[in-house]
Computed example of a mutant assay.
Amino acid sequence: MGFRRRREAEAPDENLEPTDEQSDEVEETEEVAAVEGGPWDSEDAYPEMQRLDFGAFQVPVAQGLGFQVNFEATEVDEEGNPVNGRPVAVLVQHSESMLQIQAFAAPKRSGIWAEIRRETSQEIVEQGGGQVQDEEGPFGPELLAMIPAPLTPEVLEQMPPELREQIPAEFIEQGWAPQIIRFLGVDGPRWFLQGVVQGAAIEDEEQWQVLEDVFRNIVVNRGEQPMPPRELLELTLPQEFTEGAEAEEEEAEEMLDPFERGPEITEVR
C-alpha cells in the first residue's frame, strides 16, 4: 500500500470527564455482538457525562471540541438552489482532525458493517481511483482508504494561505494530493453507527485518542418505529444549537449602542 496507518493505541486516554450535569433481513452479514465499553445503546447502563442530544444519538462534550451539522437538501427552487433540508450527519472537530458521525437502522439479529465495508472499498477503488486496506481497530474491523483529492486552481484559491503554502509542489503540479480517510463502524441492536475520521488524527495519536473517546461514549437512540435497514436515523438539533441561532438573529435585528456590551453567544465546546 502507498499510505501509512496511524500507530495503534496502547490504551484509551480518558479525555472525556464525567460531569454532574446529567445524573428485517439482509444479505450475508456479521452477527451483531454485544457492544462492550461503548458506543452505547440508549437501553444500556452507560456512563453519565455531558452530551449533546441530536435525537438519533447523543455525543459527548469535552474541552476543545467543536460541533457542526451537515444538511441534505430536500427541496430546491426553480434554479436548483436548496430551500429546505434535513440534518444527515454530525461533525466533531478537534484541533486539525474531524470525525463525521451517522447512525442507520439495521436488522435485529444481523449487522451491516461487513457489507458496507465491501461496498465502500469497491466504490473507492473503482470510482475514485483510490486504495483501501482492512484494519483491526479498537471498535473491531475498520477500513483505511487513500483517496486522490483534487487540487484545482479553484480549490487552492479557497484554501487559507498558510495551508496552501504547506502543500508540496509535486502535488500542485500533478493536480491532486493523497487524502487518508479512516472508516469506523459498530453494529448495535437494530442500529449501525459509522464514524469517518480525517485530518491529523490519522497519524497523531493524541488527537486520535480524543476522537476515539468521543466515538466510544456516543449513546444511540434507535427508537421503536419499524425502519428498513440502512435508513438514516432521524437527527434533530440540540437545544444549545437552536438557542444560539435565535440569539444571533436577535443580535442582527437590534440596533446596539456601540459603547454598550451586547449579547454574547458561547460556542459549544
Rank of each mutant, 00 (worst) to 15 (best):
G2P: 04
G2L: 08
A9V: 13
E10I: 12
P12T: 10
P12F: 12
L16W: 03
T19M: 07
D20R: 10
E25N: 10
V26H: 03
E27R: 09
E28T: 10
T29N: 10
G37H: 10
G38Y: 04
A45S: 06
P47Y: 03
E48W: 10
R51V: 06
V61S: 00
F67W: 07
V69W: 08
E72R: 11
A73K: 14
T74E: 04
D77K: 04
E78V: 14
E79N: 11
E79S: 12
P82N: 09
V83E: 06
N84K: 11
G85W: 08
R86S: 04
P87I: 02
V90A: 01
H94G: 11
S95E: 13
S95N: 12
L99T: 11
I101C: 02
A103I: 00
F104I: 03
P107F: 07
R109I: 10
R109P: 05
S110D: 09
R118M: 09
R118S: 11
E119Q: 13
T120L: 09
S121G: 09
S121M: 05
Q122S: 15
V125D: 04
Q127E: 15
G128R: 09
Q133V: 06
Q133A: 05
D134V: 07
E135A: 14
G137A: 14
F139A: 02
A145D: 11
A145M: 13
P148M: 13
T152C: 12
E162Q: 09
E162D: 09
R164L: 08
R164S: 09
Q166L: 10
Q166R: 11
Q174R: 08
G175M: 11
Q179A: 15
L184Q: 08
G185A: 08
V186F: 03
V186W: 01
G188D: 01
R190F: 00
Q194K: 07
Q198T: 15
A200L: 11
A201Y: 05
D204W: 05
E206H: 07
Q207G: 07
W208V: 01
D213L: 10
V214R: 12
N217D: 04
V219C: 01
V220A: 01
G223Y: 02
E224M: 06
E224L: 07
M227W: 03
P229Q: 01
R230A: 05
L232S: 00
L237A: 00
L237H: 00
P238K: 03
F241R: 04
F241V: 07
E243K: 00
A245P: 02
A245R: 06
E249Q: 02
M255L: 15
L256I: 07
P258T: 02
F259H: 04
R261D: 15
P263T: 03
T266V: 08
V268R: 11
R269H: 06
